[in-house]
Simulated assay, not measured.
Amino acid sequence: MSTQISVLYDGKYNVESLVKTATWSGDVAQPHRTLTLSLSNTLNGEDQEIAFELGKEIRFYVDGKGVFRGVIFTYDITEKGDAVVIAYDENVYLTKNTDTRKFVKTTAGAMIAELCKSFGIPTGDIANTGYVIPRMILRSKTLWDMMVTALTETRKQNGRKFVVYASNGKLGLREKKDAAVRWMIEDGVNIIGATRTRSIEELRTAVKVVGGESEEKQITASEKNAALATRYGLMQHYESADSKLNASQLRQLAKQRLKELSTVKEDVTVNALGITDVIAGTAVYAFESMTDLVGGFYVNADTHTFSDGIHMMDLTLSKTDDLPKLDYEEEPEKKKKAKESKKKAKEKAKKGK
């Protein structure tokens, strides 16, 4: 069955007749999706059919369904009229703005809403992320890195996962529950090719978290997966936590980190007939006999290609829900004060002897 695409430029020009290939892609590590159009932008070999302008809007439809709305960031054209248009959805502005911000006793959701308001980014539904972050100073970071850092700290404490998304030109934040598997991809039906990789390179079987205002008031929390340590060997993750966390919070952090890190990493790449709803962040059931590929997987990255009525997709799948992570590090000034406090304590101890 042939797939029909439509492309609307600047709200008034239907330009799908110029499109040779359309590539629509996304990755859970990025806040935005991308549309790349390969065009033959001339009818007479001398002039452009459409003079595409940077900053103008592009909308992309597949079989009548709107799947992309974004802004043109790049336009290339040759003397033959061969052109390339690259557009991103509105969440790209999270990566184009950098600032320094201080947050005190604020949830990640409230931080995201505040950042969007400050930079004029329209928002839709913003979920309540629950955990109140005691204190966070983020220096010279993009808005996206600030958001990921706050969501990472939240996930460490309460285990809840949240994703940033774009819908109808607005930024939204929703909790990521276990995704319902609606789509199956299998050999002999829609899989064209598949590769599977399993690895324990990043697996850890023990976690040690250290916090506290100074060395004398240091608090330590340790967790270990004895069964995995016996099977794969002892591999410990060490982490310095926010000094304001108490013993209970440190234990919770250690348990959560062990849960995240004690997983065998499994990556799968699949080339298959395209399904529009299968994009980064969704889940699929996959079966391929040679690679022994069986079960449910998360889609971490997707690339959908449309050409001559044929829709294909390349997927990166994983057993683990690999949302982007950025650990928070205390600002240099605070570290400096901690070192000074530690030095003074040592000097005081020496004098006491």
Results as ranks from 00 to 15, higher is better:
Thr282Leu: 09
Leu143Asn: 11
Gln157Leu: 06
Val71Ala: 13
Thr36His: 07
Phe297Lys: 12
Thr263Pro: 01
Pro122Trp: 00
Ser2Trp: 00
Leu115Pro: 11
Ala338Pro: 03
Phe103Asp: 10
Val270Met: 10
Gln252Phe: 04
Gly64Ser: 08
Gly188Ala: 06
Ala226Asp: 11
Phe52Pro: 15
Val268Phe: 05
Val181Tyr: 05
Gly45Val: 03
Ser222Thr: 03
Lys105Arg: 12
Thr123Met: 11
Gly109Asp: 10
Lys336Ile: 02
Thr303Tyr: 07
Ala338Asp: 08
Leu39Pro: 14
Val164Trp: 00
Lys176Phe: 02
Gly159His: 04
Glu260Asn: 10
Gly159Gln: 07
Ala113Leu: 13
Met313Gly: 12
Thr74Asn: 15
Gly233Ser: 12
Asn190Gln: 07
Ala247Gly: 14
Lys319Ser: 10
Asn41Ser: 09
Asn97Val: 06
Gly70Glu: 02
Gly169Ala: 10
Lys334Phe: 04
Thr276Trp: 05
Ser6Met: 09
Lys156Asp: 07
Asp99Pro: 13
Met147Cys: 15
Ala227Pro: 08
Asp145Thr: 04
Glu223His: 09
Ala221Trp: 00
Val268Asn: 08
Leu293Asn: 11
Lys350Leu: 04
Lys56Glu: 09
Gly295Asn: 08
Leu315Thr: 00
Asp178Trp: 05
Ser262Thr: 04
Leu203Asp: 05
Arg174His: 05
Lys335Val: 04
Ile77Gly: 13
Asn44Met: 04
Leu173Ser: 05
Trp183Met: 13
Val268Ile: 02
Gly66Met: 15
Gly169Ser: 08
Leu39Arg: 11
Lys351Leu: 10
Asp322Lys: 15
Val164Asp: 05
Met111Leu: 13
Phe297Trp: 09
Thr142Glu: 06
